[in-house]
Design a protein around this nucleic acid. Sequence first.
DNA 1: CTGAAAGCGCTTACAG
DNA 2: CTGAAAGCGCTTACAG
Lengths: 348, 348
Amino acid sequence: MPPRHPDSAAPARRTRATGRVTLADVAREAGVSPITVSRALRGERAVAKELCERVQAAATALGYVPDPAARALASARSSHVAVLIPKLSNTLFVELLDAVQTSLVPAGYQTLIGVTHYDAGEEEAVLRSFLAHRPAGLIVTGRDRSPAATAMIEGSGVPCVHVMEVLAEPGSHSVGFSQRDAGRAITQHLLDGGRRHIAYVAAQLDPRTLERGEGYADALAQAGLGERVHKLLSPEPSSMALGGEMLARVLREAPDTDAIFFCNDDLAQGALLAALRLGVDVPRRVAIAGFNDLPGSDQMLPPLTTVATPRREIGEQAAQMLMKLMRGEAVEQPNVDLGFQVVKRASA
Amino acid sequence: MPPRHPDSAAPARRTRATGRVTLADVAREAGVSPITVSRALRGERAVAKELCERVQAAATALGYVPDPAARALASARSSHVAVLIPKLSNTLFVELLDAVQTSLVPAGYQTLIGVTHYDAGEEEAVLRSFLAHRPAGLIVTGRDRSPAATAMIEGSGVPCVHVMEVLAEPGSHSVGFSQRDAGRAITQHLLDGGRRHIAYVAAQLDPRTLERGEGYADALAQAGLGERVHKLLSPEPSSMALGGEMLARVLREAPDTDAIFFCNDDLAQGALLAALRLGVDVPRRVAIAGFNDLPGSDQMLPPLTTVATPRREIGEQAAQMLMKLMRGEAVEQPNVDLGFQVVKRASA
DNA sequence: CTGAAAGCGCTTACAG
DNA sequence: CTGAAAGCGCTTACAG
C-alpha cells in the first residue's frame, strides 16, 4: 500500500464539508474577501468594477451556486414567494399561478404554492408553515381570510399583494378588477338583449362569486326589475355537471326564466351541453352567459357569451408589484384595476 | 426622561436577533440542552420520555416553529420536494400535482413546482436552480429529459421518483402505467366495435403521446391492419380548437376514416363539438375516442369514450414512495404499475 | 440517554 | 470602496 498523503496524518478535523463550491472558494480564486464576493454577486453597489469582474469570472470558473439556505439564515429572508390560492381545480387560479411563476422565476424567486380549499383553518395552517420559511413576499387571493390569517400576514412584515379584487384600504396592495361591476356589465348585456327574467346561478360561493351576484342585482334594480332578482346558490364545488343540473332546476322551478348568468364558465359550459341533451334552444328559449372566458367556452355550441377576466395580466402585474416591494422600492399605484371585457358570442 | 434600564448601558452587543423563538429558548424553558430539544422535536429516538414531554410542552407554550433555513443549512437537506411537470395548462398535470401536494404537505414537506414547457434547456435550468436548494426529494415526469438533466439528478444524490410511466432500469423508482398498452387497449376497443379505418391524432408529441401511438399501431398490426396505420401528428400544443381542426382535416384527407383515437381528451372534446357544428354524426359516421378522462368528457354530446388514467393515485403513491426514500427506508416495489381503464361511453 | 463544541455558508453591522 | 469578526438557528459528530 502506498504511504498515505501527509495531510491525512494530520489530526482529524471535525469536518462536515458538503462538497459544494462556497463563497470562500470563489474569494480565494479571485483573491478577495468573501464579503466582496457576496457583494459583487448580489450586484450590491460599492464594489470596484475591476474586482467585480474578477469575482464574476471566478464564480463562473468554479461553477458557484449560492446556497439559498445559508442566504436565508444570514439575511432572515428567503428567496421564496408564497402564493395562496383557493383551489387547483379551477383553471382560473392555475393560469394566475402560471403567470406569477413565469414572472418570478427568472428573477430568482421560488414560488411556494398553498392551496386553501376555501377553508379558513387550512389557510391559517398553510400561512403559518409558509411564514416559518420567511418568504420574501406573499401573494394572496382576494380579501377573504380570517382575522387571524390577516393578523399573521401583517405581523410578519412580509410584503403582500392581493389579487383578483381591487382593495381600497390604506396600505393595501392589490391587482384585480371589480367583480361587482363585471357582474353588472354581463347582466346589462342580457337586459340589452331584451331579457327580463334573468336568473343568477352560482356555486362554491366564495366572496367574488357573491360580489358578482350583487352586480347582477344592481343591474336588475337599475332597470326597475328589482323584484325579479332570482338567485340560485349552491355551496357545492363548481363543475360542468352541476351547471347542467342547475340549468334543469331553474327551468323547472322558474319556467319564465329567459336568461341565466352563471358565476363561472364551467357551470355555463355544462349548462350549454345539458341544453343540447335536453333539446333546450339556446339562446332562443333561454340565453346563457358565463364568467371568466375559460378554455373551451369559445368552442361550445353555441359559443358562450361571457366575461373575459385578465388573470394572466393580474398575475404578471402582481409579481412585478411584489418585486418592487421586496426590493424596498416605492409603488406608485398600489391598487390596480385591470378591468374586464364582456365577450359577446352566440349564447346570449 | 426615566433612567434607561441598566441593561441598555451594557456595551452594545452586535445583535441581529430576529425576534423568533429559537431552539435555545425552548431549551431554556424546558431546562434541557438545545440538542435534546432538537432530537425530541424531530422524534429522533434516544430521548427519555419524560424529557420529551417537557420539551413538547415548552415548545407549545412558546409557540416555537423550527426555522427551515437553519435546519437546511445544518443538515444539508431542506424540506423541499421539487416537482417537475411539463405544463400547467394540461389538467392532467395539475391533478397530479394536487395529489402530490396533498400527500406531502401534511408530512411537513414543501412543494417546489418547476414547469419545463417540454423544453430540455428549461428543464436543466429549473433543475439547477432547484438542486441549489438541496431538495429532500424530486418527482419528475416520465423519462423524457436530456442526458445533462439526468446526470444532474443522479449526481445530486437526491431521491427521485418518476411518474406517469413505469421504468425498468435498475435503481429507478417510478409510479405510472404503460402508455403503450393503454393506446393499444383503446384502439382494440375501436376494432371490437367494427371500425377498420382508424386514425391516431396527436398534438404536443411528448414521449407518452408517441408511446400511445405505438400502442395504436400495435393493435392495428395485430388485427392484420398494419397498412392502415394513419397518424396525424401536430407539434402544436393540445387544445379543444386544435382537436376540431384536426377532425375536419382527417375527414377531408381520409374520408374513409371511421374512427379517431385522439391522444388527449381536450382534442377529443374539441372534435366532438366540431362534429356537432359540422353535422358529423358521432359515432355513426366516425367514432371518437380520447385519452385521460378529463373533466367534462362525461358531459359531452355524445359522452366521450376514453381511457381513465389514475393520475391522482400516481401522485399519492409517488409521494409515499418518495417519503420512504427520503427517510432512508427500503422500498419493496420500486416500479409500480397502476394500470388504466377503458371507459366506454357513447362516442365510440 | 444527554451534552459541549463546532460547523453549515452566507450576510449584517462596524470599522477603516 | 474593502475587510475581519460575529452571528443567523439549527444539526452533526464526538464524548461520556
